[in-house]
Structure formats: structure tokens, C-alpha cells
Design a protein around this nucleic acid. Structure first.
Length: 486
RNA sequence: GGUCGGAUGGCCGAGUGGCUAGGCAGAGGUCUGCAAAACCUCGUACAGCGGUUCGAAUCCGCUUCCGACCUCCA
């Protein structure tokens, strides 16, 4: 197990050596989706980023318990601690049960995650499945003096909490200024302080999603589910808590406060935040209307797209940027990733066809270590990919007979690709129906070879051009003709 | 307004106080019946202005621009 992994910790705003609390076990909690609508590509990026992190930790030999929640209750539609949660509203709009909404989009989310080849979490708890735990936690926070009830709604007392704790530890904001600058929106709030947030919310008479509690019928606030479920499955203190950067200021800040107020300890040792996917420099989001749905991308049906891109192309595109950088989404960038990804996978295909030499004039020894160095430096996948392209260049050169590699070199290249392309980066071959087509293509290539042998280039070119139009590209070489799908 | 983060060659994107990732696009070449692919070579980029330094794109300051968060969002 390599022990030189360094992780950027939002808490300290520095890179820190990764030292699990109880090695070889690692507890990681990632805030999952709110399943009241389709996940868009920006959401996917976060989960692909954490998939990379999960995969690398596993690759290093850690026993990871990866918990990622499904938010299926309590996430309010408005910007105040009142009104409907998102599920109730959506259910009313579509004349469905809230749980039908939840079911539909949970399945959709899982389908998309599978297409992106992400490993499923170890535990995927739902908010509605943990109402009792959340109520218990709220009770404890009240008992500890950090929350109060008003008319059936329980609020977290930020001012009280901040007397002995650093409420803004995660984002380093000035609490006094926050209090002064917080917009005065509602007016009719029952809250004592402007920053106070709801732990438990009283249900209105028409509200369908409701549970009994010591404070009457209601439903949990959004933040409390993560605190309750992370402590249930990972303990009061665990290794990594992650999520999108947009969650840091509010959701995660409140999570820390809740856990501290309940358990007298900060929940996670390392806080990791992934950056946003942008479109023309602006964050992709549901409310901005610039969200891409995964299937629009795969099929190319979005008006901003010229063509569709496969899930692995998109995954590769995401991994070509560091998880803490914004990534700008465009046709051109996707096109570049598409071609690059095919080049890389094509080189891997050639690995089995390489002929070993007695001597070597290629350098493959350092590539793997360079990949580990890159991943150990806060999961720097773009640098890993650069190394893999170096490997691809070597493979192509050897295949062309322009360079010599020993059997040992070839084995090293195979091992490199297995470990990093498949295992760590989580990429996979996307070949459909190759078996059938393969035999047909063999036959067609045979026909064309005969035409070529007869110098009947009219026929051979006709075959090649015809296939080209169908999206199949022929490549002639000394060893014969190969084909790829464009 | 506050907090934080950015500005890298045609595009996307790493990185670093001196050895100047990578992909895509472009130019030239090798190979080839011709293509395609592949390989080789090439463009010497780091917002602007000052400063520190033997040396900065990398550190510091200022300026301009952009973004995120502060209000639901991964």
C-alpha cells in the first residue's frame, strides 16, 4: 500500500498527507443526488470524480466503505425554511405519489451511473428510510442546547453554536458580516437568528410526506439526513466527506455544526469538494436552464451539440481535467476527447499484437511510477492520462516496427494499462455487436484484398468509401487491413 | 457588497522559481496504388503593470476581466 497519497482538504485549504483513522479501512461519505428530476451532466461529474477517488483508494488496497445518500425528502423548494419540499411539489405537478417521483428518478440515476461505469457505493441510504435516526439526532441537539422549537418546527441556533464553535470553518467567512449581509427575505420567520436553519419542519395540512415526531407531524430538514446517516454507517468521525463545491457553504457547513452540536465532534477528517462543470464559462445548473441531460449528450439530441458522444468519451473528457478545476463543456472539447480516447483504446488493442524483440529502445519503466505519483498528488488524473498517451505512442511505434520492445516491456505496458485505464480511471471498451460484424468485416476485407491484388482500385476504393459512409474505417498496413468504428 | 477561486499557445486542459505535460486542430515529412491510421519534426503560450531574484509564466503588490458561494442546485 503506497502511503504517499496527498489530499486537498477544504477544512485547512491545503494538501495533507492522507492518514486514515483506522487503516486499512476508509470511510467515505459523498452527498448524493436529490431525486426529484433527471440528473444532469454537472451532477454526473461529481459522481465520476468520486468514483475515481473511490477506485484509487481501492486500488491502493484500502477497504473503503463508500456511502452515498439518496435525498428523497426534506429538500425544500424555496429558499426559506417553509413551503414544500421538492418531492411534494413535483408530485403534485405530475399527479403522482411523491414516492413515484423518487422511484423514477432513482432508477434513472442508477442507469446513468452504470453507463458511466461508476462503481456502486457500499451503502446508499435514503432520507425517508432514516427518519427515526434524524429525529433522534434533532432531540439530542435540542438536549445539548443548540436547537429550539417554534410551532412544530425545530431550528438550529447558529448564534448559540458559534459562541463556542467556528461555524464558518469550512469557508472561512466572517460570521458577523454574514449575519449582517444575509438578506431579509421572509419577514414572518419564526427563527431567532437569520442564519438559523430548520432541523425538522412542520407539515402543512395538505403536505403528503409527513412523519410523526415529538414536535408533531412533519418532515426532516435537508441537512440533517447526511449527518444522521453518515454517523450511523461510518461513525461519529470518519475519513472523507465529499460533495460538490456548491454544497460547502451551506449544506456542509450546517452538517459540521449539527454533528458538532450532537456528538461534540467534527464529522470528517478530510473534506473534499469537486468543482463545477461549466457551459460557456457559467455553471451548469437546473435553474439556469443550461443543463445537459446525459442521454441528450449520448444521442446528440441537444441543440448545442453536433453529434452524440459515448459515455466513456464523456467520462474520459471529465477525467482529462482535475476534479478541483472547473471544466468547460463544448463541442470542440468533447470532439478532442473523443478522438484522444479512441487513439488510446486503439493502442491498447494493439498490445496483444506486438512482437517482442531481444533488445529494447523504449522507456516504459518510469511510466507506471509517474502515474502513481500523479494520483498520489490529490488524484491528478489529467497527468495520468498524459502518461498513458506516452505509452500509446510507444505501443504504436513498436507495432509499426519503428521501435523495439522486449517481452518485459510489453508486459509492463499491459500492466500499466490494466491498472490505470481500467482499474483506476474506470474506462472500458465500448464495442457493440463486434462478434457478428467482425465476421462480416473479415469477409469484406477479404474481398477488397483480392481486388487490390488485382490492382482493381476502383472496386477496393468503392468498398472502403462505402464503409466510410457507414462509419467504419479501414486501415491498410503491411500486416493486412484492420477496421475501426468511427 | 462580503468570502473564495481563476486568467496558460487556435480550442480543451496539466504543471512548475531555471530542465518549458498531454489531447484536439494546423504545417511539413516518412510510410502507402491512393487514403486513413501510425510515427518524426514544427509553432517557443502563460491577462496587464510594477517588485523580489543570478533567473518567474511559477513568489509579492496593484490593475483589469471572469467565475463560484453568500438564496434551491453536484
Amino acid at each position: 500500500m503506497t502511503n504517499s497519497l496527498v489530499i486537498y482538504n477544504t477544512l485547512t485549504r491545503t494538501k495533507e498527507k492522507f492518514e486514515p483513522l483506522n487503516p486499512p479501512f476508509v470511510g467515505m461519505y459523498v452527498c448524493g443526488p436529490t431525486v426529484y428530476s433527471d440528473v444532469h451532466l454537472g451532477n454526473c461529474r461529481t459522481f465520476v470524480s468520486f468514483d475515481l477517488i473511490n477506485r484509487y483508494l481501492l486500488h491502493l488496497g484500502y477497504k473503503v466503505r463508500y456511502v452515498r445518500n439518496i435525498t428523497d425528502a426534506g429538500h425544500l423548494e424555496g429558499d426559506r425554511d417553509e413551503g414544500d419540499d421538492k418531492f411534494s411539489k413535483k408530485a403534485r405537478l405530475e399527479q403522482l405519489e411523491p414516492m413515484e417521483i423518487v422511484q423514477r428518478y432513482t432508477i434513472g440515476f442508477h442507469d446513468v451511473m452504470r453507463l458511466f461505469n461508476t462503481l456502486p457505493p457500499s451503502i446508499e441510504p435514503t432520507a425517508t428510510g432514516h427518519i427515526a435516526e434524524q429525529i433522534e439526532m434533532v432531540k439530542q441537539i435540542i438536549d445539548n442546547g443548540f436547537a429550539y422549537e417554534r410551532e412544530g418546527t425545530v431550528y438550529f441556533d447558529v448564534e448559540k453554536y458559534s459562541q463556542g464553535n467556528n461555524y464558518t470553518i469550512l469557508t472561512n467567512r466572517n460570521l458577523e458580516e454574514l449575519l449582517a449581509n444575509t438578506r431579509d427575505l421572509g419577514g414572518q420567520d419564526e427563527k431567532k437568528g437569520r442564519l438559523d436553519f430548520a432541523l425538522w419542519i412542520k407539515a402543512k395540512p395538505e403536505h403528503i410526506m409527513r412523519w410523526p415526531s415529538p414536535w408533531g407531524w412533519g418532515f426532516p430538514g435537508w441537512h440533517i439526513e447526511c449527518s444522521a446517516m453518515s454517523s450511523k454507517y461510518l461513525g461519529d468521525v470518519f475519513d472523507i466527506h465529499g460533495g460538490g463545491m456548491d454544497l460547502a457553504a451551506t449544506h456542509h457547513t450546517n452538517e459540521i455544526a449539527q454533528s458538532q452540536a450532537c456528538n461534540h465532534t467534527s464529522p470528517a477528517k478530510y473534506w473534499m469538494h469537486t468543482n463545477m462543470l461549466t457551459v460557456n464559462g457559467a455553471r451548469m445548473s437546473k435553474s439556469a436552464g443550461n443543463g445537459f441531460l446525459p442521454h441528450e449528450l449520448f444521442t446528440g439530441s441537444h441543440p448545442l451539440l453536433q453529434k452524440g458522444y459515448s459515455p466513456m468519451t464523456v467520462r474520459f473528457f471529465m477525467l482529462q481535467a482535475h476534479y478541483r478545476s472547473t471544466l468547460d463543456f463544448s463541442n470542440e472539447a468533447l470532439e478532442a476527447s473523443d478522438k484522444g480516447f479512441k487513439r488510446l483504446m486503439n493502442a491498447i488493442d494493439l498490445l496483444d499484437k506486438l512482437k517482442p524483440s531481444a533488445t529494447s529502445n523504449v522507456q516504459v519503466g518510469d511510466l507506471k511510477q509517474a502515474c502513481y505519483d500523479a494520483m498520489n498528488d490529490d488524484f491528478n488524473s489529467p497527468v495520468v492520462i498524459a502518461q498513458l498517451f506516452e505509452a500509446a505512442r510507444i505501443i504504436n511505434g513498436v507495432y509499426d516496427g519503428k521501435a523495439q520492445a522486449t517481452q518485459e516491456d510489453i508486459e509492463a505496458l499491459k500492466s500499466l494499462m490494466d491498472d490505470f485505464v481500467y482499474d483506476v480511471l474506470g474506462l472500458k471498451v465500448e464495442k457493440a455487436e463486434t462478434d457478428d460484424i467482425g465476421k462480416i468485416m473479415e469477409f469484406i476485407i477479404q474481398l477488397r484484398s483480392e481486388a487490390k491484388a488485382n490492382k482493381d482500385y476502383l472496386t477496393s476504393d468503392k468498398i472502403r468509401n462505402g464503409l466510410q459512409d457507414l462509419g467504419i474505417q479501414l486501415k491498410d498496413s503491411k500486416e493486412g487491413t484492420t477496421w475501426t468504428k468511427a
